[in-house]
Design a protein around this nucleic acid. Structure first.
Lengths: 233, 233
DNA sequence: GCAAAAGTGTTATGCGTACACCCATGG
DNA sequence: CCATGGGTGTACGCATAACACTTTTGC
């Protein structure tokens, strides 16, 4: 009943006008306990009730896409500081049963510490990327997630984007795990270190990782704050 | 007078609703007489009257972005067969003085023969990319064009996209000119030929270019019809 | 025969890749 | 002293980059 009302309301306000409605959805990646995760919401209403969906919402008039992004991200997830990039716009007329909604999809990368500090985990949850049941994803969000994942791979191959998903300090082994996870292949330790260090995108902090029962690893940090094109692999 | 009426009409129908309106604009590249050109329209009405603008239009409800693209391209330019790719969506609230219009920008590549056969040259014109006076470009279309040009460069570096802007048959020298023009740098003839031939994306047609007063060049054609990732440079 | 563009090979250098052992620490 | 992950160097092959002369045709 409630969902029917909302649906009607939606249709009346928006689809009586014969123009497509604009929305914005966000694919948020993070690394939690060493594995790639997505920040997804559980849809509470029809259509697609009970599925996992991307945090998103209708676009407001009078503010830029980026401001709409910030607004929607905050309202739907509580998260404030992320690396964001526009991904693609999806506009199949049947992608939402309520009517023709064109969505501008973004993807975002967030350091897990920031995520846990700011995210409202009653509204969104962390889902491991690899154990995600793709049949449980609502609307066309599976397609959007796949598109975002592909873009993420490319960005790891060709830029220093990794800085946006790693914590402030990290060991070279941790960095290598992240690359292996994203690129989906094993890398040679010596070659990886040689390549990464030759790119001069990270530097030693002078500190050591003391939380392990073996030889402590040097901690590194990224030099740059800006996205740079570097041919990593 | 006429433009005021249209503007009012526009405002009344669309901006009373407090949602952004969706449009689609296209950056069309072609090569005419060996130089990179854009297909632009001259804006006849306010705002931005008298400037060059991208062919574009409002998005229709109920059809996909690609169908909207085909529809707008045909209505605004007459052109039917192009290679197209979504570029980026632009949504600054002040990008159009009539109200908040979010545009999904596409870029397209078209072979000059197809262009001249189909384009309605009373509505659009060919403008050399390099001699384009950027102050004469309306709305935020200069930004969109620059974005498209950057994308084009990347595509030439990493894919066989060149096949979509060259005629069916071409000489290796012509192909090299196109690459030099797009990439903005000179290439060594021997290395270029070696690289291109090793990529196996083109093949000899067996025919020769007989319209010159010197040694006739072999004519080549592209093997593939699909976009392929190839590291050209 | 001359002008003009087509066509062709070799060498040097840098980069990616493959690969195995010693080191430092905590328990 | 042992288990665990941290850290290090070399050799080979391939791709890129630099470079100049001969060939074919029309006029």
């Amino acid at each position: 009943m409630q969902s029917a009302t909302i649906q009607q309301e939606f249709t009346k306000n928006i689809f009586g006008l014969s123009i497509p409605v604009l929305a914005l959805d966000v694919v948020i990646f993070t690394i939690y306990h060493g594995v790639l995760c997505l920040v997804l919401a559980k849809r509470e209403k029809e259509p697609s009730k009970g599925t996992f969906i991307l945090p998103g919402g209708l676009m407001k008039v009078g503010i830029s896409l980026e401001e709409n992004f910030d607004d929607i991200l905050l309202r739907k997830t509580g998260i404030t500081e992320v690396y964001k990039e526009q991904l693609y716009s999806f506009g199949e007329p049947d992608r939402d049963t309520r009517g023709h909604i064109v969505t501008v999809a973004y993807y975002a990368l967030v350091d897990n510490d920031v995520l846990l500090r700011t995210a409202d985990l009653t509204r969104v949850q962390l889902i491991e990327y690899n154990s995600l049941d793709t049949t449980s994803i609502g609307f066309d969000h599976k397609k959007i997630i796949q598109y975002a994942h592909q873009r993420l791979i490319w960005k790891f191959e060709y830029t220093n984007i990794a800085m946006n998903i790693l914590p402030k300090q990290f060991t070279l082994s941790e960095l290598q795990w992240v690359y292996e996870m994203i690129l989906g292949k094993e890398l040679d330790k010596r070659n990886f270190r040689k390549k990464i260090l030759s790119l001069e995108m990270i530097q030693e902090t002078g500190e050591l990782d003391r939380d392990s029962s073996n030889r402590p690893a040097k901690l590194y940090e990224f030099k740059d704050k800006e996205l740079k094109i570097v041919e990593v692999f």
